[in-house]
Design a protein around this nucleic acid. Sequence first.
RNA 1: GGCCCCGUAACUCAGUUGGAUAGAGUAACUGCCUUCUAAGCAGUAAGUCGCUUGUUCGAAUCAAGCCGGGGUCACCA
Length: 593
Amino acid sequence: MKKLLFDCLKHNLADELRRALISHWTDLSLTIEDLYPLLTIPPQQEMGHLAFGVFPLAKKLRSSPPVIAQQITALLQQRQQQSSSQSSFDRVQSIGPYVNFFFSGPFLFKTLVEPVLTGAGFKQKLFESAPQTMIEFSQPNTHKELHVGHMRNACLGDSLVRLNRYAGVPIISTTFPGDVGTHVAKCLWFLKYHNQEPIPSVGKGEWLGRMYSKAHLLLEDHEGTPEEANDREKLSAILKQIESRSGEFYALWLETRQWSIDLMKDIYQWCHIKFDHWYWESDVDSDSVKTVKKYFAEGKLVESEGAIGMDLNDENLGFCVLLKSDGNGLYSTKDIELARRKFEEHSIERSVYVVDMRQALHFKQVFACLKRLGFKQADQCFHLQYNFVELPDGAMSSRKGNIVPLIQLIHQMESHVKENYLDRYRSEWTNDEIESTASVISQGAIKYGMLKIDPNKKIVFDMAEWLKIDGDSGPYIQYAYARVQSILRKFSGTNIPLSQGDYLKQSLELQLMMLLGQFNSQMAQAVETYRPNVVCNYLYEVAKLFSQFYHECPIGRAESEGLKQDRLALAKATREVLKEGLALLGISVPERM
RNA sequence: GGCCCCGUAACUCAGUUGGAUAGAGUAACUGCCUUCUAAGCAGUAAGUCGCUUGUUCGAAUCAAGCCGGGGUCACCA
């Protein structure tokens, strides 16, 4: 997907620069596309609002960068004085190899803040072409525990869906829960033959997950004992019943599967995650074997050591088994069939999978198979591999008994928020507002925590650390939003005269405008690199700068009514950016906190 | 052993199409609530960007090779 040159400030300046340059160096061929990426933001605002690094140009002109920078600066100053047409910048100066531009408050306001206030800036197309895309994320197993690790996947996927949609990419979101397989059989086996506990009336899904963990441990304990053969026989009988859709275990499967699904749906509802389409492993399972058999019959697959699959050794991907020697399929088998359905039933051109990094080879193999099977969409398949969520004492495991259930994190976060921050409002707020605010802030803390780390990096989950919601956190950004709301409630009672930014002159004010103007380019970068943490960093910067502005640029006590209105408008624009940006992370905002 | 990911302040991380003096947050210390919400702001202190070589005007960023940590390598998912 090719990015558009949507940054209006840069685009206009690049054009102005181009015209100036070719008027002086007449044999120079330059396009806006050449110059646009050379416009960057200086490390310090005192240097300028935008900088043009002249290195490539100096090379073309066979001169030293500082000399060229000086020449260009002089040229621009000259044109600024002579030309009847107004230049966009206020002032230009060269520092070393850079030509630095300063803009006026009203100009920045008009170009960067107004589009935010009217909402037009949020409706821009960010990419030239946008293929029909499916994003698959959240593939939890039924009958197992839903833990904090699943949250990372869900947050990443949901945010990518939102970001792509924002950028104008048509998206179908989908999930693929694993509702069949040996883990299910293990769980049902334990339930039937070993469980002593009564089935709880609420929280069945969580309870079922714990049963699975117990099953797993008991089976491990049986390994190498006479029980082992017996267990295996029973497990296989259970699997057979589920597969043939008959018998007591099929009935038990149906019942228990629903408990897990109810839990999943509760969690998705809590975090406002919706899927356009649900694929079930149980639905794809049997067809996947048929499909692969058909491919084999067509001569597209080969046999090796009794198994059927595709030889990918020439791509250094080994042999991808699609049918075991016993005739059963595997994970890859299902993914081939699933991909076929996505392509054919939803006209998918680009397919994204949010799955942890352990599956890297698996997806390379699947994509290679799809390509060789003739699916041209295979080139547009992408596996977003993210790293694990671990605990301070290492990976989560049933053996260690250190799994942090998602529900527990949610409950602890909500109680923590209420006890430490919201209880003080009990006398002023309704109970409903306390509860909903606690939920919104907890979501902010949890989702931001999951998203702010680069997907490639491990997250070490430490409950005590996560409950500290100050500094670089979701609630910090939500707090900035709530403060704007508070200001607006207080000061925007009367009808606001149309602000034009005439009074905005302070460094912080100009800096804030520049930062707000970067919204779309930041979002585009996040989409392009599949990294919602770009959004987190950006929003944190905005919130931080706003907090400084809040302390140093008073609104209620502004020196003039004009300044007050301009600052109100700036605060309002900040609010819009924070709200829109948080929404793209799947985080909502509280009216007060 | 092959392939993939990671290595930046005491800790957790930004910094990614090579650009100006490497930035935040935590923790520590010091200030700021009769003034728009202190879940905040200001300040102090903290660095061999894992190591080495290379590419170039310029490298935390790119390339190669090492070191350290994690993952993965056909009938598990």
